[in-house]
């Protein structure tokens, strides 16, 4: 017997989908912004000559690289109140989990691009008397920025998809809306198909934009 698809009852719940989409975009935007800042700071630490900056930054990145994302969500939401008596709402916990983990990924994006430049560029700056910082700012970063664009976009897409983990904290993003609609309509197949389509449209639009930005930047 063929399954009878019925999107009507599901699509009637569009305000709830929209609300979920809003929640997804909100935590994604905050986490990208904060993650980039924190990632830049950690990248600076990882590339520092000072061991007391370099080693903790390395441990940080290794920690996030080698543990599953959902664990970070649980930690901020469920464990922190118990071990440190710090309580926060689902939004704050989700943003913290996403920000701290995306910071470690962005850190590697920045660091990878900077390290990919030949040593001769640093020496070219040093040979005319530039400090390391001047060389970084004037010579290295303008070139590294172009090499960051691709991996940066890649990471940002991962981050946007990872926001779905926030549903486990009952934070009202897209997937959480889907669970609710599914419970009301008993139409999980339709609901998750719609969710997939929304994610696809969102990310596909972003990727078209990103491709355009990338092309413009690399053709200067």
């Amino acid at each position: 017997m063929a399954y009878e698809w019925d999107f009507g009852v599901v699509l009637a719940q569009w305000p709830l989908f929209l609300k979920g989409l809003g929640g997804t975009l909100l935590i994604a935007a905050i986490s990208i912004g904060l993650g980039v800042i924190l990632g830049a700071i950690i990248a600076t630490g990882r590339m520092s000559r000072l061991a007391w900056l370099r080693i903790p930054a390395g441990i940080y990145v290794d920690f996030y690289r080698n543990t599953p994302g959902i664990v970070h969500f649980f930690w901020f939401y469920y464990a922190l109140p118990i071990v440190a008596d710090i309580r926060m709402g689902p939004l704050e916990a989700a943003v913290l989990a996403l920000t701290t983990q995306s910071a470690s990924f962005y850190c590697e994006v920045f660091r990878g691009a900077i390290l990919s430049l030949p040593k001769g560029q640093w020496e070219g700056g040093a040979a005319i008397g530039m400090t390391r910082f001047q060389t970084l700012r004037r010579v290295i970063l303008p070139q590294a920025a172009l090499r960051m664009v691709g991996p940066f976009i890649e990471r940002t897409f991962e981050l946007i998809k990872t926001t779905s983990l926030a549903s486990t904290l009952a934070y009202g993003e897209l997937l959480y809306s889907a669970t609710q609609i599914s419970a009301q309509t008993y139409r999980p197949m339709e609901v998750y198909t719609v969710v997939a389509l929304i994610y696809f449209c969102l990310l596909f639009t972003f990727s078209l934009l990103a491709r355009r930005v990338e092309r413009r930047l690399t053709h200067v």
């Binding site: 070219g124 700056g125 040979a127 004037r138 303008p142 070139q143």
Partner: peptide, 13 residues
Amino acid sequence: VGMVFQQFNLFPH
């Protein structure tokens, strides 16, 4: 003390 390198090390940007 200025230096000129084998690989030039010009700033390509």
